[in-house]
């Protein structure tokens, strides 16, 4: 099991890494949309758009990893 898989499956506080990843993805989506809204209103805010989109792509790339077999925990 790779370090990334361990991170996704391990419990941290109330939730597993996968749930925290989903929360992080939601925050990234909100940042990107905040940027889009800012661009539409003022013409500025591209940094938020790029940061939000990049974080979203990173979250999706990690969260799409299938869970490893139950026997491969160590």
């Amino acid at each position: 099991m790779s370090a990334l898989d361990r991170l996704l499956e391990r419990r941290a506080g109330p939730w597993s890494g996968r749930v925290w990843g989903l929360v992080l993805n939601l925050v990234a989506n909100a940042v990107a949309l905040w940027g889009v809204s800012s661009v539409m209103r003022t013409g500025g805010g591209w940094t938020w758009v790029v940061a939000g989109c990049a974080a979203t792509v990173a979250c999706l790339a990690v969260l799409a990893r299938p869970a490893p077999s139950p026997g491969s925990d160590e």
Binding site: L22, N25, N29, L60, L63, A64, R65, P66
Partner: peptide, 21 residues
């Protein structure tokens, strides 16, 4: 066990997130 399947689901989830936001 499919990366692509998970990715498809996550794309839909991201769009649902966008609606909420």
């Amino acid at each position: 066990r499919s990366y692509l399947w998970n990715l498809g689901i996550l794309l839909q989830v991201t769009l649902l997130n966008a609606i909420a936001v």
